[in-house]
Amino acid sequence: MALEQIREVRGHGVPVPGDDIDTDRIIPARYLKCVTFDGLGEGLFYDERFGEDGAPKGHPLDDPRYAGATVLVSGSNFGCGSSREHAPQSIARAGFGAVVAESFGEIFFGNATTLGLVCVAVSPEARRALSEALRRDPALEIVVDVDGKQVRAGDRVFEASIPESAREALLAGYWDPLGELLEGVGDVKAAAERLGRAGAV
């Protein structure tokens, strides 16, 4: 199945402060009670954004100056914690195309890439500068350049890193691997035969 080739994500950005932002914060567990991913965007960062009485707490995502942002900028180890795909699903469904962070939780990174949600890592200095620039000028255009491994913000250029396998997959439009995995089913059956089955009864 041919997928979109993702060379870059271009749009406005929103800085989300903090390191080690875990998947429970990205999407609280009560939003996992669902049999489809529809509507998950509304739960994104819910408890960070709203108090128990439902009153907004002044989170950047609710700041009208960042409305319509498509690039989320955050700290190190973003998406650590649980394997819930609901986390990148909620980010994508809230309209984001890319996350720029200092580093990523590994399961989150894989889940995001499989959805075509671009995750690139930048240095702590670059992240600080980007966040600062976005606070000064929320209308700043951000370009997450997958091909060139850069994040550009106005006239500033920051080096970005992304594992080559993810970069390749995004650029060539096979970030969802299912199609290619299905092509290998003949080989899979042979390998399974050769190894025998763990847990056989």
Binding site: S83, E85, I107, G110, N111, L115, L178, L181, G184, V185
Partner: peptide
């Protein structure tokens, strides 16, 4: 641990 799309991948392949 894996995400749900990967659960799909394991079920299918």
């Amino acid at each position: 641990g894996i995400g749900t799309s990967q659960v799909r991948d394991v079920l299918a392949t």
